[in-house]
Amino acid sequence: MTGDYGSFLAVGAAMFALGGVGFVTRRNMILIFLSAELMLHGVSLTLLTFGRMHGNLEGQSFTIFILTVAACEAALGLALILGLYQRTKSLDVELWSHLRESDLPPSVLELDKDQPPLEPESPEPPMPRLTKAGGVPIIDDDFPAELARTTDPRLIYTPSAPDEE
C-alpha cells in the first residue's frame, strides 16, 4: 500500500523522533521550541505523504492548518520565553523546575545538584493520585504570594509592587 512513498513516511517518522529527543534533552527554551517545530515538520511530511497515497488533497489542507497552529505557537511561545527570561535572566528551563506538581520528584539535574538524595519515605498504598489544585507556586524570593492571587493584570506581571502614584 505504501508503494513508492514508504521512504517519505520513514523520513517523517525520523524527523519526529529527532524532534522528540531535542525537546527532552535541550535545556535552552528557544531550542525546545525549535524542536517542537521539527516534530511538526515530521507530522506535516507524513500527512502530505498519506494524502498523496490516497490521491486526495486532505493531507495538504491539514498541513495548512498545521502551519497556522505553528504560527500561533511561535507567537505565544516567544512571548512566554520573553516573560520568563525577564524573571531569571536566563534561558535555562531547569530554573523553572520548581513549578512542577508539589508531589512529583525533582528532576535529575536537580538531584545531581543537591548532594543528599531524598530519603525513601514510607511506601504509600497504590491508590489513584489526585494532585491538589489551586496551589500558588512560589515564583521568586522577592515575589509576594499575594500578588500572584490578584486579578489586576498590572500587578500580576510585576516582580515588585508598583510605585504609588
Binding site: 520513514a10 517518522a13 525520523a14 519526529f16 523522533a17 529527532l18 522528540g20 529527543v21 527532552v24 534533552t25 535541550r26 535545556r27 535552552n28 531550542l31 536566563s90 534561558l91 535555562d92 528551563v93 531547569e94 528532576s107 535529575v108 539535574l109
Partner: peptide, 25 residues
C-alpha cells in the same frame, strides 16, 4: 552558556524516542 553544554536525561530520551521510531518504521 552552561545550560547548552549539558543535556537533560540523554539516555532515557534517546531510548524512548528510538523505540517509538522503530515501532513506527
Amino acid at each position: 552558556s552552561f545550560y547548552d553544554q549539558r543535556a537533560r536525561t540523554p539516555v532515557m530520551s534517546v531510548v524512548a524516542s528510538w523505540l517509538m521510531l522503530a515501532a513506527i518504521m
